[in-house]
């Protein structure tokens, strides 16, 4: 599913979080939203998820204009904020069941999918525990399990690598994400960790002060950079110098 923003502007009082952003994300790739704090990454993700309303411009999915009542479009998207939205007093398994039913993904085979995911994320032993007895990383893994089990077309993540997940969880997440890409899913995530951005993403979207400053594959960005070994660091340095 193709995702597109056309001339999107979004302000929070005096701060312009997104400034005339036009960008297109093709299906079947992992896109990293990279940028300093307050660059507009989370706002962009929230606009895609329908949580933030653009002041101007529109969001399109497969050339269809996004509206909150277009549930046919919304059912293809799954947004995972930096803290999963779960029912804390209920168990991990119950939360997964509620979410699967919400997306109509509770049919035959859901049990095996959920079992495998829980095992992959080391969550099986905690599956019947109420969410609020878990650590931050475990809660994130619970949300992630629900998301992966629902398996929508577009996966939106806000800072998944700053979620408190352990290395095993991060590894499992990367593995499942790469498998999903092969199935044609689109993954858009934000991060501040340059190493992860470089190795895990197919395309990098550099945002600064609400504007898209670069959007390309790592190879192309590297070919344009002077310091070929530290492409992203160089871009960040340039942005910083621009501000000084």
């Amino acid at each position: 599913m193709k995702v597109e923003l056309r001339g999107v502007r979004k302000s929070y009082k005096a701060v312009r979080a997104l400034d005339d952003v036009s960008i297109q994300f093709e299906a079947g790739q992992i896109v990293c939203l990279l940028g300093p704090n307050g660059a507009g990454k989370t706002t962009l993700l929230r606009c895609l998820a329908g949580i933030a309303a653009p002041d101007q411009g529109d969001v399109f999915f497969d050339n269809e204009k996004f509206r909150r009542d277009r549930l046919d479009l919304r059912s293809h998207i799954y947004f995972m904020p930096d803290f999963p939205f779960l029912f804390w007093e209920h168990s991990v398994a119950r939360n997964i069941a509620i979410i699967l039913r919400l997306y109509g993904a509770d049919g035959e085979g859901a049990e095996n999918r959920v079992f495998e995911l829980l095992r992959d994320f080391d969550m099986l032993a905690l599956a019947l525990r109420p969410v609020f007895t878990l650590s931050r990383g475990q809660i994130y893994k619970a949300g992630l399990t629900a998301m992966l089990a629902a398996d929508r077309d577009i996966w939106l993540f806000d800072e998944p690598f700053a979620s408190g997940m352990d290395p095993q969880g991060i590894d499992a997440f990367k593995r499942h994400a790469r498998e999903a890409i092969r199935r044609g899913r689109t993954i858009i995530y934000s991060t501040q960790i340059l190493d992860v951005a470089e190795r895990f993403s197919e395309r990098i979207c550099l945002i600064h002060e609400g504007k898209i400053r670069a959007y390309d594959t790592m190879e192309k960005l590297r070919s344009r950079a002077q310091d070929k070994d530290n492409v992203l660091e160089e871009m960040f340095r340039a942005l910083r110098e621009e501000n000084l």
Binding site: A93, R94, I96, A97, L100, R101, D106, A110, E111, N112, V114, F115, L118, L124, A127, L128
Partner: peptide, 8 residues
Amino acid sequence: VIRSRRFL
């Protein structure tokens, strides 16, 4: 619980 779909 998971395999038997009881969680659902």
